[in-house]
Amino acid sequence: MDAQKVDMFIMSNGKFFESHQMNTIRDGLLAADDSKWAVISSTQFTDPTTSLIISILAGSLGIDRFLIGDTGMGIGKLLTCGGFGIWTIIDWFMIQNATRDKNIQKLHKVL
């Protein structure tokens, strides 16, 4: 793929991924076929900040986990009142990384 397109993608979507993954993403995008550009540029990623806000407000209902597509974990949190409140607090710190993980999986699926 065009280096210019790749850089544009990275500039606009950088916040959705871990910084140490950027090089792999860049290499992967450069190696990808040009025909995938339409799909890649239209893929929706979840903002880690949004999931953090949801986690703080509705974490004990597991809504943050549902939001990033972790349905099983979300049900686990919902049924146990957010894991007796402990899991809720752990997720305040884990949810941003979990969101970035989900985003990179989404990108790998498209690539």
Binding site: S60, L61, L78, L79, T80, C81, G85, T88
Partner: peptide, 18 residues
């Protein structure tokens, strides 16, 4: 009571009573 919602708002959450 271990439920955060119940302790903060006094409203039971969906899984209170489990």
């Amino acid at each position: 009571g271990v439920c955060v919602i119940k302790n903060l708002t006094n409203i039971p959450c969906p899984s209170c009573g489990t």
